[in-house]
Design a protein around this nucleic acid. Structure first.
Length: 203
DNA sequence: TGCCAGGCCCTCTTTAGGGCCTT
């Protein structure tokens, strides 16, 4: 499995299109099944965190007031992950914020985004829930810290991603799993899943 | 004007609706 960067955002809300901004980012580098690098930072975008989200994440307006500017943090984390493929739990959410915050510093993502939520629906179809905390419990993986903080969530998404690729190898006798295969699997209708995997095994 | 996320995925579906998941 090639090296990937697993990321997680905390934000002021659900949609950058509605004016929501990032408040914290973490990225961990997953190489040969182990975390070999970590980046984490609060960031100050000037946006106000609603009370509900302050209590959800534990990240307060006081905490981000003294944090480095969002532009500085995004430059750093973008340099940190380089061109490694990105992984996130519910990547449709994190990719929206990644692209929006990167766009503000005139950078553009080049690499693919892999979604551990979409993969888990296919690889763990019988899990009672596919939210991150439920999957960590379902797969008996360690809780890395407080949920809804960026570094803890990124580390847990990384261990979940590692478990998912392991299960995929075991279930389908695959020697090697590429990011390209994961991208095809996560968007494939379940009826075509075996076709994609059989093609990967043959290739 | 009034509304305000949006993609995935299932089903009592496809001329649609609603739950899940992220903060």
């Amino acid at each position: 499995m090639q090296t990937v960067a697993v990321i997680d955002f905390e934000t002021t809300g659900l949609s950058p299109g509605q004016g929501d901004r990032a408040t914290e980012i973490a990225a961990v580098i997953l190489k040969d099944g182990a975390i070999v690098g970590r980046y984490q930072s609060l960031m100050n975008s000037g946006a106000r965190i609603p009370p509900f989200i302050e209590s959800l994440t534990g990240i307060s307006n006081d905490m981000i007031r003294t944090a480095p500017p969002a532009a500085v943090v995004m430059q750093e984390v973008s340099d940190f992950v380089g061109d490694y493929p990105l992984v996130a739990h519910n990547a449709s959410f994190d990719s929206k914020f990644w692209d929006a915050e990167l766009g503000r510093i005139d950078r553009k993502r080049q690499q693919a985004f892999v979604c551990s939520l979409l993969l888990s629906r296919r690889i763990f179809p019988f899990a009672p829930s596919h939210k991150l905390s439920a999957l960590i419990e379902y797969a008996n993986l360690p809780v890395a810290g407080r949920y809804h903080r960026a570094l803890a969530d990124a580390e847990m998404a990384a261990s979940l991603f590692q478990r998912l690729t392991h299960e995929l190898r075991e279930q389908h006798q695959l020697n090697n799993i590429s990011v390209d295969l994961l991208c095809r699997i996560q968007h494939a209708p379940k009826s075509q899943l075996t076709k994609h995997i059989a093609h990967a095994r043959a290739g």
